[in-house]
Design a protein around this nucleic acid. Structure first.
Lengths: 342, 342
DNA sequence: GAGGCGGACGGTAGCGCTACCATGACGTAG
DNA sequence: CTACGTCATGGTAGCGCTACCGTCCGCCTC
């Protein structure tokens, strides 16, 4: 009684098996699974029983080929270890965990070329949606996104010219707000310390600069940056450099919290009083900033929410309900803490 | 001169277009792309020219359907924000970035049920390999892995009974080594502080307990754990609890570095001398532990290397070269630092 | 010179599903 | 009573690729 099985297909039940068992056409099974409301109650039950009995699971590859659409979200982030993106991802995953969408994750390593390559890999499989970090795609990447034939959400930042949709906040404003806060607290020789210096960091720097210039405090020597990837270790080193360069430094705006933590530790180690001698402000407001001693002022960014919202928008677009406003600014919040409270 | 285009396929060139243009059969194009050595030099060049001219990209969905094998690595991790897994992922990505494999990432949220669900989603698409974190799969998950029909690598830990292959290290030994070190440094009332308490944490705790018992120092009141997800904030709180419970505490072995950092900050805040009054040891050795003040002793785990090695093993298995030894123990290294140097 | 053999290439037939269109039953309008 | 729309269901024909097997040709062997 062994059914003759196809040479390739490992012997898993197919939609035809289900149809035979349920006494209906294959199409009706397909419909019952995808658009149950279009199949009568009776048949639906019959089909469900056959599905359960056989343990049928639709083949996603066959489905993708036939419908020219894969149930896949393509997600492109520049880094996996940067906890900022980890939280965006968490938001994306949490929003998609009830659905049957799979998530294909690409790591661009902050490289436009890598991004192009990954889009070239993602494109041909016709994903249901694409979520990409950043708004500074290369012209080639941009064209690939525009011709992807699916909803595209650019995340982390907002800007004037979305490929399709955007969810993020203004890094310029965030940098500006942080700097203004320090000026307000009486700091004058406020340094900027930044690593990696990707486009978003650049905009935070621009915000810093704008605030400093507005207060007549800007001085190019206050800015210390490096293209090297960010780390706590690097924060410590850059702070030392900055201090060597400008011994009168009385505060630092750190490009991100890792850097800020490095600065804080170095202050401890060198017995520099925080916030009295040096004020510190970070960016992103990781969990630990509140717990640190002294607690560290930081700009809270809506990372998790960006992930959630990007999926919500993509899902809406897939369902044909495009949002009125394609660009969503989720804002940020300056968390004032001990490290700048002098 | 508009070619009649198929109703569904959006107009992208297919293998037939390439074959026509190159004046060969479709099969030969397919072969030229996948097994170039089986096609003559001449035709290969001709076909490559046609591919370039048309901008042909093979359809991965059609490929997967026809060959019953998708060029996809399925990866299952319990958390996206835990930087330990982020580094494993980085290793995986770096090892796969030159290949045409795509990576489908699933987040199990430390839940066996979620893992089962994700395996059920990954399986039908016939991935090229599966990499899963942990060795404590549910029976259902285990069967799904065994019947996946592709190489499977369990990562993070080693154990006696691999589904297929394993790469990791002994968490028990890590916990034991950390504890022994503290005993050696003269600490006696050594607490264990742990959050989440997933199976790997449990084994670290078991290692701690074994070392404490061997020294005649074990006391159940020294152990403070919670199922709540780990965070720096939580480290601080648990440390307070532990101290309230056992005021004579003179050291803590922290389940992970986040917890350790929370403890360190709380010591600063409460003016508790480290390492004099309290010794601290973490687990994983994140970048920041070395920079912290005082620098924190921790067990360095080969996270990135685990990622790399797991891919290497999977790739070898795909190529038919199964490793002699299916279980690879990458070990760990105890980093002795200021936080336990009294 | 016949037969055998291996290497290069191609044709056919799917892989398992869904888009598209057809069919038939039924209800409603004129 | 006919015409026509609507709804539930089914049949056919692919989606774009590759497994399988066959053909052809050149070369070697005896």
């Amino acid at each position: 009684m062994t059914k003759p099985r196809s040479r390739r297909g490992g012997g898993r039940p197919t939609i035809a098996d289900v149809a035979r068992k349920a006494g209906v056409g294959a199409i009706t099974v397909s419909r019952a699974l995808r658009e149950p409301e279009r199949v009568s109650e009776d048949l639906r039950r019959q089909i469900q029983a056959a599905v359960d009995e056989l343990g049928y699971l639709p083949d996603p590859n066959a489905r993708a080929l036939a419908s020219a659409r894969a149930e896949v979200f393509g997600v492109l982030v520049p880094s996996l270890t940067n906890s900022v993106f980890a939280e965006v991802l968490r938001g994306i995953y949490d929003s998609l965990s009830d659905s049957s969408y799979r998530i294909q994750l690409g790591n661009t390593h902050y490289s436009g070329l890598e991004e192009e390559r990954l889009l070239q890999v993602f494109g041909p499989q016709r994903p249901a949606a694409l979520i990409v970090a950043g708004i500074d795609q290369t012209p080639i990447s941009r064209r690939l996104l525009e011709t992807a034939g699916c909803p595209v959400v650019q995340v982390m930042e907002t800007g004037p010219d979305p490929v399709d949709m955007m969810v993020g906040f203004s890094h310029f404003d965030g940098g500006k707000a942080a700097t203004e806060h320090m000026i307000e607290m009486g700091y004058r020789r406020i340094g900027f310390i930044g690593a990696r210096m990707d486009p978003r960091s650049q905009r935070r720097l621009a915000g810093y600069r704008a605030a400093m210039e507005a207060a007549g405090l800007f001085d190019a020597r206050l800015v210390t940056t490096t293209p090297v990837p960010s780390s706590v270790t690097l924060g410590r080193e850059l702070f030392r450099d900055a201090l060597a360069k400008v011994p009168t430094l009385d505060a630092v705006f750190c490009n991100n919290d890792d850097i800020a933590l490095g600065v804080l530790f170095e202050c401890h180690r060198a017995s520099i009083a925080v916030p009295k001698t040096i004020g510190i402000t970070g960016f992103n407001d990781l969990d630990m900033m509140e717990v640190a001693f002294p607690s560290v002022t930081s700009v809270r960014t809506p990372r998790y929410e960006i992930g959630r919202r990007s999926v919500a928008m993509a899902l809406a677009a897939i369902a044909g309900r495009r949002p009125q406003e394609p660009v969503v600014d989720l804002g940020f919040e300056l968390k004032r803490r001990e490290s700048t409270a002098r």
